[in-house]
Design a protein around this nucleic acid. Structure first.
Lengths: 126, 126
DNA sequence: AAAACTGTAATGATAAAAGCTACAAATAGG
DNA sequence: CCTATTTGTAGCTTTTATCATTACAGTTTT
């Protein structure tokens, strides 16, 4: 997203993004597809095609991106199934979930207040 | 830690913790060793040995545990080395680090206000 | 002295993430 | 209309991180 913000107005093909960040074009397309489904980017096939932001970087927040990617947790436990016979183990998913919700609630305003443009201005080129 | 809090006053061997949560005793010992190094638990070898909290669960916070485990990040980027020739890619570690710091700053008070005892009371047995 | 622990190292297994190959569908431009 | 470019997606392989396993020296209790 910062790459797209940096190159506002230009359609970037997955190939170009992939090269500049050292990833695979398919991986890029997979992520971009999620972002497009959330309405943050617009993609177009064919020559001169690629991805571009649907609105200015000053009106896209990190929260928008976080949501578009399915809100991955800030805190997570181990993946194993809890053991039903253990009172503590059995409740761990709820404990972790509650903690994550609490953190997410506090993090939300920060992520919502941070725009891609702000990140570009503060961190890139500076 | 919740298992130890639940069994306050009793020394739990790694074998017992491992069985009840479906993990390996060695994995438990590794984590417990970190917690012991941070002064949160006390371990003892030999028969009747094991781990126990060094102070009441009401005076151990989730923040204590988070710190003991090396403050794993709330937000992290991909592991690849940034590409030096790309302005955006090059700055990604800083961008991610800043975001994480901001979230950590807001999450800190919550984690500090949440004691193991509170988690036991609210989530376990309820 | 024997048994029950911890701590830690070395190695093996497993699962999640990312990469790779391939191809149908869309689009632009000659 | 034909070719080249690009997305979207499926299927498979490779890589990487995590956890499990085995092994053993050191400590403590009985």
């Amino acid at each position: 997203m910062l790459a797209l913000a940096y190159n506002a107005g230009v359609r970037l093909p997955s190939q170009m993004i992939a090269e500049s960040i050292g990833a695979n074009p398919v991986t890029i397309r997979r992520v971009v597809a999620d972002l497009a489904a959330a309405g943050l980017v617009d993609t177009q096939p064919g020559p001169g095609g690629g991805a571009t932001l649907t609105r200015p970087a000053s009106r896209i927040t990190v929260k928008d991106v976080h949501e578009a990617l399915g809100e991955p947790p800030f805190i997570d436990g181990h993946r194993k199934e809890p053991r039903a016979h253990c009172d503590v183990s059995r409740c761990m998913p709820q404990v972790v979930s509650r903690l994550n919700d609490a953190v997410a609630k506090k993090a939300g305003p920060i992520l919502r207040a941070t725009t891609l443009q702000a990140l570009l201005d503060e961190e890139v080129e500076a």
